[in-house]
Design a protein around this nucleic acid. Structure first.
Length: 417
RNA sequence: CGGAGAGUAGUGUAAUGGUAGCACGAGUCCUUUGGGAGGAUUUAGUCCGGGUUCGAAUCCCGGCUCUCCGACCA
């Protein structure tokens, strides 16, 4: 992508009022644009990061044997009345009437809709277990949207639902899902902790939250860094500095965390009210046992920025960076240099490198360097008069200080390592 | 929803009752080109509605919005 053609503009100043680092950097770097509190547009760079995050999630969900679907955001009241949650979630659900007076709402979650769809697919124990997931926009009338992408009113969520004949089957899949979640967060550049938490309205059992440590977090977690044991402060009877109840040798720390994912054993809470049943081997109608598994996509993206940045800007992990390399053509844009820059760009594109080419002729050298640091692509590649005369390029990793002047082929080799 | 702070040009800011100014951005021209360059010139603004006043960005009332703390967070 040539930057001179990109629908994109960075800001020199920090946005007024924004305190959250992810909001400051993502807005300054023009990844996102805030429309209202908790509602953001994704501009080209932000869209690409979001796509990378989504791809990772999709790959791991598919690896679990799950298939992707898409459910609507607009729901009729009737489906929600079955569980009583039209009233029960009225505080956070956007509810209104359409032109004919029919009551409809924007989905804050999809258990009810999922159960209704499940009825059309699952008839028999032979149809179980099954899982499906979607990556879709949720709407919650949050009393207080906050912290940039961390708590929105309109946001993207991956929600997976699993269907089972019994608790044992659910438990088995539940453990697989845990592993998949850890893998997703690791791939996205985050260290996450499986945290015991309240099951809320869903279950009397503990649910599990996936927590990432950062001061921007709104949760507090008691955590043993040694063995990874973690409990949400809400349910924990632990105290900071006490010995870890699991491994005995570690010490419990109280840390701020962001909940990037959570998983619930739903049991028959949603299947029963809507009559979502299967026939067992005796032909008896039995409620389907369900689990639900969520990941906040935008929140994950915001958390990555909270964890991976420095005083100059974002430092994207390679797995989610909008481009791998930022090619800067600096110095006077002579025809020779422009040709050289174009050649390097074409060659990188040809060899499959995702590269953003800062070919702007009106931007100054400093501007380009500042923007490159702010945007935070893993590699910075500079072409200038100096490098051109040696037929070389200058490369630098965003998270390292040293620069290297190398042949283009050498850089391609490094990228392929 | 309780509490606090803040709304002035695309962005960041100044003006506290008396000519709305500055910087960045954007347009035109010249110069410059390895860390947000320099000069000339142009462009663009007081959140909304009332009120007080000769006069309101400024004071008062109401509303809206944003940020933060708390409550809430299947």
């Amino acid at each position: 992508m040539r930057q001179s053609q990109l629908f994109f503009r960075t800001q020199k100043d920090f946005p007024r009022d924004e305190v959250a680092i992810n909001a400051q950097l993502l807005i300054r770097g023009n990844f996102v644009e805030k429309l209202m509190a908790g509602v953001y547009s994704y501009l080209p760079l932000g869209w690409r990061v979001r796509e990378k995050v989504i791809r990772i999630i999709e790959e791991e969900m598919n690896a679990l044997g799950s298939a992707e679907i898409l459910m609507p955001a607009l729901h009729p009241r009737s489906v929600w009345d079955a569980t009583g949650r039209w009233e029960g979630m009225a505080k956070i659900m956007y509810q209104f009437k359409d032109h004919s007076g029919r009551e409809v709402g924007l989905g804050p979650t999809h258990e009810e809709i999922m159960a209704v769809i499940g009825k059309t697919v699952i008839d028999s124990y032979a149809d179980l277990p099954r899982t499906v997931y979607q990556i879709q926009t949720k709407y919650r009338d949050e009393p207080r949207a906050k912290s940039g992408l961390l708590r929105g009113r309109e946001f993207t969520m991956k929600d997976l639902y699993s269907f089972h004949t019994d608790e044992a089957s659910l438990a088995e899949f539940y453990e697989e899902a845990k592993k998949a979640y850890l893998k997703i967060f690791t791939r996205a550049g985050l260290k996450s902790y499986i945290t015991e938490a309240s099951g809320g309205d869903f279950t009397k059992e503990y649910s599990h939250e996936f927590m990432v440590e950062t001061d921007a977090g709104e949760d507090e977690t008691f955590l043993c860094r040694l063995c990874g044991f973690a409990q949400n402060k809400e349910i924990s009877k632990l105290k900071a500095k006490s010995p870890c109840p699991k491994c005995q040798s570690g010490v419990i720390d109280k840390v701020k965390t962001v909940e990037v994912g959570n998983i619930f054993k739903l049991g028959t809470k949603f299947s029963e009210p809507v009559g979502f049943t299967y026939k067992d081997a005796q032909g008896k109608m039995t409620p389907v046992v369900m689990g639900s598994y969520g990941i906040g996509v935008d929140r994950l993206m915001g958390t990555i920025v909270e964890v991976h940045h420095d005083e100059k800007g974002i430092v994207w992990p390679e797995s989610v960076a909008p481009f791998q390399a930022h090619l800067l053509q600096i110095g006077e844009a002579t025809p020779e240099l422009q040709q050289f820059g174009t050649n390097v760009y074409d060659e990188l594109v040809k060899s499959g490198v995702e590269v953003l080419f800062d070919d702007r002729t009106r931007a100054t050298t400093g501007e380009k360097f500042f923007d490159a640091d702010l945007i935070g692509l893993p590699w910075r590649v500079v072409v200038s008069e100096k490098t051109m005369v040696q037929d070389k390029i200058e490369i630098k990793r965003r998270n390292e200080a040293n620069v290297k002047v190398v042949k283009l082929k050498e850089f391609e080799k490094i990228l392929n390592e």
